[in-house]
Simulated assay, not measured.
Amino acid sequence: MPNQYKPTPPLDELAPHILRYWKTRLNDKEIVQALQKHFDTECYGIGLTKFRQIRVDMGLERSRRQGHTIETIHEAVAELRKMYPHAGTQEMISLLFHEKSMSVARLVMMSYFAAYEPELVRQRKARKLKRKRFWAAGVNDLFAVDQHDKWLRFGLGLHTGIEPFSGRIMWIQVWHSNRNPQLILNYYLDTIAELGHMPLITQSDLGTENYGIANAQTLLRQRYDPTLQGTLQHRWMHTKKNVMPEITWSQLWRRFTPGFENLLDEGVIEGWYDSGDTLQMMVFRWVFIPWLQRELDAYRDRVNNSAKRRDRNKVLPHGVPNLIYNSPEDFGSLDFKVFICTSSRGH
């Protein structure tokens, strides 16, 4: 491992990158290799031994060092189970890591479920999967967007944007509507402004709420590539054909929704929503939407930094979505992003 005779890079420059890679659950050797991109290897070096020392000093300890048992994780799992009643082994390990900073071995988690939740284990094993295949040329080939209406009965509308090649959730937003084209367009514009680039094409179901994204994507692509004049840079999909956002909603509905829906059923259906009081509903939105948005942001961050279970039927790369998106060359993939000028936003 390089380079034991060179000085270690300054920790204040290295620490943010260590934390970023730590969140993706890479092992020490993989993190050391990834860190080589972030300092001058002619002047500095870092090996496994030094990295492990730095990691421990930063309070980042692996499962073996933390040494959790089914008893030590019981309280944390019971707390998380209230909000995530359907979380399985992999999901609960991820929740403990991202929400509680607890690194738990898979064997310990499986032993916990066998001891405390045997009925839930039997239910999860009984599920049958429906497989759908999706193919994309590379990172930023397209963004697929979609709305989610199952919480409209609470006066809440969800919307998401997915980069399908990496599986990265670009945004997942909640508001009291998901039918306003200007609102949906803002989700997209805020995302590409933060990134500094845009995809080759966007994709959505048929629906007037997506007209803003379709028009903006086409206009911007034609601005940066005049040869595209007269072409549509948005792909309209028929019902149930916009596969990747549908998968995202399915996973959200299974992994995130149940616990929060219980809160909504108790607080909205039994109270404010049934009363028909407009003022109370506005107060509910003012209090609940920002809180729920923070929870959705945490869910998005957790999903984007977690490797999905390996699937031999999957034709796209396997790995952590954020790593695939930010370093496609490491996965033998291409990046089709179109760089944009963001200084004119809002003028």
Rank of each mutant, 00 (worst) to 15 (best):
M281D: 14
E270T: 15
M102P: 02
V268W: 15
A137P: 03
R81M: 04
Q36M: 09
R20H: 09
Y84L: 00
D225F: 08
L206P: 01
N215E: 14
R65A: 13
I192S: 06
Y5G: 11
R345A: 13
L200P: 02
T257W: 06
E13R: 12
P245D: 10
A34S: 15
E75W: 00
E329Y: 09
L80Q: 06
L323F: 04
L183E: 05
G161I: 05
M1K: 09
L292F: 11
A114H: 14
V32D: 02
F331M: 08
L206R: 11
R62E: 12
V121Q: 12
Y211C: 07
E119V: 12
R235L: 11
R179Y: 11
L189E: 14
L183N: 01
R65M: 06
L120A: 14
N322W: 07
V303A: 05
G207V: 11
Q36T: 13
W286I: 01
W286F: 14
V77A: 04
L189A: 06
R168K: 13
P328R: 10
S63V: 03
P290V: 00
V287A: 10
L228G: 04
F339V: 12
I54M: 05
L206F: 10
D277N: 15
H38T: 07
R25I: 04
F39A: 07
T231I: 00
Q90W: 04
A78V: 09
L80Y: 01
N242L: 07
D28Q: 06
L26D: 06
G271W: 15
I70N: 02
R285S: 10
K125E: 15
E194Y: 08
L26C: 10
S94N: 06
R300T: 10
S275Q: 15
V315Q: 09
E42M: 07
E61R: 12
D330G: 10
T231R: 09
S275Y: 15
V77W: 05
W291F: 08
D205L: 09
S103C: 05
N178C: 08
Q293K: 03
K240R: 15
L60C: 03
L316W: 04
R223K: 13
R133Y: 08
R309I: 12
G276T: 15
H86W: 03
Q33R: 10
N210V: 01
G196E: 05
G167Y: 02
L95I: 00
W175F: 07
